[in-house]
Write a protein that binds this DNA or RNA. Structure first.
Lengths: 187, 187
DNA sequence: CCGTTGATGTCAGTCACTGACATAGGAGGA
DNA sequence: TCCTCCTATGTCAGTGACTGACATCAACGG
């Protein structure tokens, strides 16, 4: 028999989501989460760098996904086409992992808390930075790479927002495509 | 005679910059800053919402500047032209307030610290949100407004980065214009 | 059977931040 | 002139996020 129940991390993840829904993020302490998961606070911080990170601990690192997508993009593709493909790829991964309702619930928690928004923005910036680097390896220099990466994040966010808004029945990738078209129309 | 030395806020601002340069942001406590400014830690937190905020406490709220610029943009301007004008306006304000060397020093501190990057990203997001709202009041709806706002921030960041990089002698507004041209070329 | 490893517990400590209340100069009115 | 309110600050105690150091002990490999 094991010394401890297995999957401490998974239990903490579940406990955190429950508690955030019950009492709100601010009123939930790291100790609360740990207690409900049957571990100590110290263990919580061994698994998650900080309290916010528990909301960003998906199995997928989006920045790796987009970097890979850009690396394997078509030879003849323009920088914008590359980042759009990356945005679609990232969207596909997200749609695989959660339903729109789950995504909406998580988004509501994040939007209600500036500290969490900051973390979300940092993740987006990481995605942008990864895109920029991947473009550089395909021979796209600045400022083109930087601007293209920004555009990729822009369509991703815009599409994602529309998807979770519930105003449409389109799938997430379809919302991304819609945003790409809208960006096209803008110029 | 006054009960306290005047301009506590200014003294804290100066003390903070000094200490960050001397010991680094992480190794400087809020109490250190307060002590050097001749006040108590409690007073520090009365003037600044948190420790990071002391690095973002410029006299200018960039989001108001861009909102105003968009509000008074030319009637016939396209959404993109509006946000570009706003980016130029914001850049002009910044260039008024600090030299490139000052901006570079501050940028170095921020780039060295993820927590500070998060805060910077939040400020950029506020600028984007303000742009989006101002565009909405000019009749530009989503997703166009959202995407245009993203583009505005993109050229702002790209131009700003180039300006502080020291690789050019162009002024900040000129760097913004360069970024705008580069974005144009991208499509 | 024994030494090592890895995930956890325990504990003490630092620091960011907050709420409640006290203090005293200065401004304005009676 | 005196009284009163206002405001910026001080004081103090408390909470909660996070960290470092060290202990524990099942499991695993030899």
């Amino acid at each position: 028999m094991a010394r401890w129940e297995p999957d401490a991390r998974g239990r903490m993840l579940a406990a955190a989501l429950d508690l955030f829904a019950e009492k709100g993020y601010d009123k939930t302490t790291a100790g609360d989460i740990a207690a409900r998961a049957g571990v100590t606070e110290r263990t919580f911080f061994r698994h998650f760098a900080d309290k916010r990170e528990v909301l960003f601990a998906g199995p997928t690192a989006l920045d790796e996904v987009v970097a890979e997508a850009i690396a394997k993009a078509d030879e003849a593709a323009s920088p914008l086409e590359m980042v759009f493909a990356a945005a679609r790829e990232g969207a596909a991964r997200i749609a695989e992992q959660r339903t729109r309702e789950q995504a909406a619930r998580r988004t509501r928690i994040v939007q209600a808390n500036p500290a969490l928004q900051e973390r979300e923005l940092l993740k987006m910036a990481a995605m942008r930075s990864a895109s920029q680097k991947a473009l550089a390896e395909r021979g796209v220099g600045d400022p083109a790479a930087s601007l293209a990466a920004h555009s990729g994040v822009a369509v991703f966010q815009s599409g994602f927002d529309r998807w979770v808004s519930g105003e449409t029945d389109l799938s997430l990738p379809e919302c991304i495509d819609e945003a790409i078209v809208a960006l096209h129309d803008l110029t």
